[in-house]
């Protein structure tokens, strides 16, 4: 195979290259605009006054106003605080449970490991929505209904399997024999974990923490079923009620769009910060 024929090959393939290149960039452009387009409209709408909304079809607001954002934020204030408290607590509990569990799965051998691991995979694939009925009645019996602690617990159902999955992957990939070397220097099994492994895992722990936080922040189902309007309702539930609860009331679209952006921004930021670790764990 000479270089001549190689060059010839490339020439012959030229139209094909153009076709695939065009397809590739065309598809990426299509996807990017299918996301940025809607968001652009939403952002622009959030700066329009109600009068502008109804007066003209123009996409760009003629006299942009911050009023929507101010009212949206004031209205959501309390529920955003609820969301924050719910998500923070969920994250702390999830980390406390899953760090040791994932460590056992990632770096230890013990009888029953396989069974336990499949139990977690099964939990990951569990259609958790079927649990809303038994959880509602149990939560009422135990006085957890309408309480922040009740939501912290309920969210473990879908946060922990995920957290274990990602952390286990990270622990597994740490160099072998770390603990043994630590034990040579006088650490016990427990202090080796606490003083050697844990500090090394901080980036992964942070990523999992972010993910737990945004999962709890985003969830509507459990917070809607396990609270009532007298309880600690998070921002997503309040947003849901603006449309479905507002019977025939006039909808202020600009303000509504500002609300969606306010609620959507924190999880987006956290995800982008954590994405490297999260994607690594899903490379199967």
């Amino acid at each position: 195979m000479s270089t001549e024929s190689g060059r010839f090959d490339r020439l012959r393939r030229y139209p094909e290259d153009v076709f695939w290149g065009g397809l590739k960039y065309g598809f990426v452009l299509l996807l990017v605009s299918s996301i940025l387009g809607p968001y652009l409209i939403v952002v622009l709408t959030s700066f329009k006054t109600p009068q502008q909304m109804f007066a003209s079809d123009a996409l760009i607001p003629s006299q942009p106003t911050l009023e929507n954002w101010v009212t949206a934020f004031t209205e959501l204030q309390g529920s955003l605080l609820n969301s924050l408290v719910i998500a923070l607590g969920t994250t702390i509990i999830a980390l406390a449970i899953t760090i040791p569990g994932a460590y056992a799965f990632g770096r230890k051998e013990f009888p029953g490991k396989l069974l336990g691991f499949y139990g977690i995979v099964l939990a990951l694939l569990f259609p958790y929505i079927v649990l809303v009925a038994p959880l509602s009645s149990l939560w009422i019996d135990f006085g957890l209904y309408n309480s922040v602690a009740g939501l912290w617990l309920a969210y473990q159902i879908f946060v922990t399997p995920f957290a274990i999955w990602i952390l286990r992957d990270f622990f597994e990939k740490l160099p072998a024999n770390l603990e043994e070397s630590a034990q040579v220097y006088g650490c016990s099994q427990f202090t080796a974990f606490l003083r050697v492994i844990l500090p090394l895992s901080l980036p992964a722990v942070a990523a999992v923490g972010f993910l737990s936080f945004l999962t709890a922040w985003n969830d509507f189902l459990f917070s809607s079923v396990l609270t009532s309007s007298q309880g600690p309702q998070p921002a997503v539930v309040v947003l849901y009620l603006t449309i479905s609860g507002g019977s025939g009331e006039r909808v202020f679209w600009g303000q509504l769009m500002a609300q969606t952006l306010i609620i959507g921004f924190p999880p987006l930021t956290l995800y982008l910060l954590a994405r490297k670790r999260i994607t690594d764990a899903f490379a199967v």
């Binding site: 939403v42 947003l239 969606t260 987006l268 995800y271």
Partner: peptide
């Protein structure tokens, strides 16, 4: 990659509300 993730990371209630507006027969653009 970051752009792809925008809609996915936001609460589904949020994206649902956005599309509810975007596709609204009377007021949606």
């Amino acid at each position: 990659n970051g752009i792809y993730l925008i809609g996915f990371t936001m609460p589904p209630v949020v994206t649902g509300t956005m599309w509810y507006f975007l596709l609204h027969p009377q007021f949606g653009p």
